[in-house]
Amino acid sequence: MTAATVIRFVRTRREATVLAMLILVFLGLTFASEFFLTGRNLSNVARQISVVGIVALGQALVIIAGGIDLSVGSVIGLSAVTGAIVSATTGMPSLGIVGAIGIGMAIGFTNGVLITKLRINPFITTLGTLSIARGAALLITNGNPQRFDNWAAFLGYGKIGGLPVQFILLVALTILVWLFATRTRWGRNVYAVGDNARAARLAGIDVAKTRILVFTVSGSLAGLGGLLLGGMLTNANPNLGLGYELDVIAAVILGGVALAGGRGSIGGVVIGAALIGLLRNAFVLLNVSGYWQTITIGLVVILAVGADSLNRRTEED
């Protein structure tokens, strides 16, 4: 690679812009705070990145396929309480895991079926299930947090070889989803459907199945996210994950996925999630008001996407 091709790569790939931001924030924090590079803080950051990252993997597939899934935040809440209740009532934590992921999968599948069979717009469908899932979580718990401290919760708070379990899960799932998206027929069909659904259908792709698949994956990963978040707090609150969909979508967009579908890389999404996690950590360490944190994340999204579309415009014409 010559210098010119490196510059071209950085200019034309949003992932690269965001990776540069990530490195900048990382270096900045290293100098700005003596607590940043401590094992305790880093594993905190890793945990923060993990749930957003895992849920963003599914969201990325949905957005690449030309859809959007607003229900993930509510699914996190519902699956956390489902996991807690199922393991408490049956006494079998393993069933709790199945319950948490299963309820997410079921909601995702329902989203997919509503969108493809009844042809309801994804935004509307998932706005509806966002409300329904949150309501269901409050209903079955009567609004009360559930204890969640058996071994299934270990996924959320535990460590293996000094690394948080959820971070290991994030890495494993990233590799898995990346392989799916780049090396399998179904993964590539996701891109084709998002790029031009009509053409994809006429080329023999089963568009409905592809869409149902991505929503099911997104729901399942949100279910896993709920399990991890509940486990991390050893307490499953029905309001868990409130507003989470915004962080997740921000991570996906930061990672270079086109909201119009058809374009984006899985690696970029994880970088996006990492940047958001790191920024949140930065405000805690630097003792800045949490309100600024929210504003900054908004600014970063606009900045990254704006820089990218400026570049894209000059490149396309």
């Binding site: 891109y191 084709a192 790029d195 080329a203 058809g262």
Partner: peptide
């Protein structure tokens, strides 16, 4: 354009 190509792929 509308029915044939997958433009970004």
């Amino acid at each position: 354009k509308t029915n044939g190509i997958l433009p970004s792929l």
